[in-house]
Design a protein around this nucleic acid. Structure first.
Ligand SMILES: [Mn+2]
Ligand SMILES: [Mn+2]
Ligand SMILES: [Mn+2]
Ligand SMILES: [Mn+2]
Lengths: 244, 244
DNA sequence: CTTATATTTTAGTCTTGCCTAAACTGTAAA
DNA sequence: TTTACAGTTTAGGCAAGACTAAAATATAAG
């Protein structure tokens, strides 16, 4: 007696997890446009690939059911695509937190490493890591970490540029990819979890001057002030992580 | 005034790290044959790919300077190939150690996860991890971890099958890829770091009976006995890691 | 010395993911 | 309403890495 076992390995999508390329494209669309349509150009710029490559991938994402794509009109994520994006973002931010808290990385270096690792770890690994980290709510940059079920709280924070002199505020998030910017702010401990007092918000040139917990004053140019997001100290602290 | 910057990105080896495929092939050759030549068939079996794919990769490895390849005669690693293999093995074993000690994985599950992660982590990550782990000498299965400089101590251990009744020995290493085997031994705490007393080595069928630290006896069949490597309890303990 | 068999290689394809160059489209300004 | 141009798509290629089927080779057995 003999058997022939026929497995249909011809459908690469059904079971297999998306490749790292596919994942990065989906994540890029999510980061650029959320639920809206992301343009070919923007995705190309973010991923450092040619526009032609993006057009090609938009078509494939549609095949895979991860995005809807209309020629000349960009691609927007389907529910499945959003789910996949959030899964990667959760991994990415948990990994960043681990790198900073347990391996001694500085917060400007965690992103690059996480960008690769997010595609290599399993769901098992991710949840065990979350456990080990005590289920943090935010990553080192203050970005909220999506829950395991794909939930992500919407948040409306104001930037330092939108505050007024006299207010005491808590730094919640720093939104900037540049290592120089992160390094500058990190060295001065202007990081999530710290609170500062707003001394001056100068309309003329957008410079915001703040006084840190040690009484030291820092003058931040418009772009810097727009990258630092805060909340009133009165509101509850939403699990800030303290980078180096 | 303008400049045109010409980068020769046409040489993919010079700077770029080997792909995970290339890495796995190099590692397979090392694991199968060490410094000798590994056959097409053996590598194909270990990596679950066709022989034709292996022949193709052998040629590429030679192009890359990672292996020497002679038709019909298999491939052997060059110094560069050995270096690359050891680099991956170091990562793999450190990652396994981390998974077991810090994420609560069981020792039969660590291999699969490490097999993917070894290609995604940076040297930076690897050395920081080694630091965090306290520079362990062995992984959860008792395999020695290559040093950062590519050094790996040669070792000559005997298996349980080669011991004699009456000896008290320390389990140093368990050489078996099967999850069932690892699970069986793990549940009985017959793992690296534990010591046992050899009760009987039966020539007839190769069954070895040992008494563990709690006085419980275990009869191990020939294949199991050949998978468990030990050293005399009198010799120095070489940094054993204790799996679950 | 021949032959059978296991192993290996060759030949021909396929998919993924990237590229450049050329053609096309949508839209905002003239 | 035409036009210019930024943005997009198409066309054509390429490299990595896998596969199957067919041909070639080494070697062990007769
Ligand atoms: Mn990524
Ligand atoms: Mn982040
Ligand atoms: Mn691997
Ligand atoms: Mn191991």
């Amino acid at each position: 007696m003999s058997f022939i076992l026929l497995l249909d390995m011809s459908d690469p999508l059904a079971t297999l997890p998306p490749s790292s390329s596919v994942g990065d494209y989906v994540k890029a669309i999510w980061e650029i446009a959320g639920s809206e349509a992301a343009s070919t150009k923007d995705v190309a710029a973010r991923l450092s690939v040619s526009s032609a490559s993006v057009t090609n991938m938009f078509g494939r994402l549609q095949e895979m059911g991860l995005a809807e794509y209309e020629r000349y009109r960009g691609a927007s994520l389907t529910a499945a695509g959003r789910r996949e994006a959030l899964r990667l973002v959760r991994r990415h931010r948990l990994i960043e937190t681990f790198l900073l808290e347990h391996l001694g990385y500085s917060w400007q270096d965690v992103h690059e490493e996480a960008e690769r690792l997010e595609h290599a770890v399993s769901d098992e690994f991710t949840e065990r890591l979350a456990d080990m980290l005590g289920h943090p709510g935010r990553d080192p940059h203050g970005d909220p970490i999506p829950a395991a079920d794909g939930t992500l709280a919407v948040e409306s924070l104001k930037s330092l540029g939108e505050t007024e002199a006299g207010q005491r505020v808590l730094i919640v998030k720093v939104k900037d990819d540049s290592a120089q910017v992160l390094n500058y702010l990190g060295e001065r401990s202007l990081v999530p979890g710290r609170s500062v007092k707003v001394r001056e918000v100068r309309a003329l040139d957008g410079v915001v001057t703040v006084e840190d917990e040690g009484g030291v004053e820092h003058a931040l140019g418009e772009s810097l002030a727009r990258a630092v997001f805060v909340q009133s100290t009165l509101e509850g602290v939403q699990d800030p992580v303290a980078p180096a």
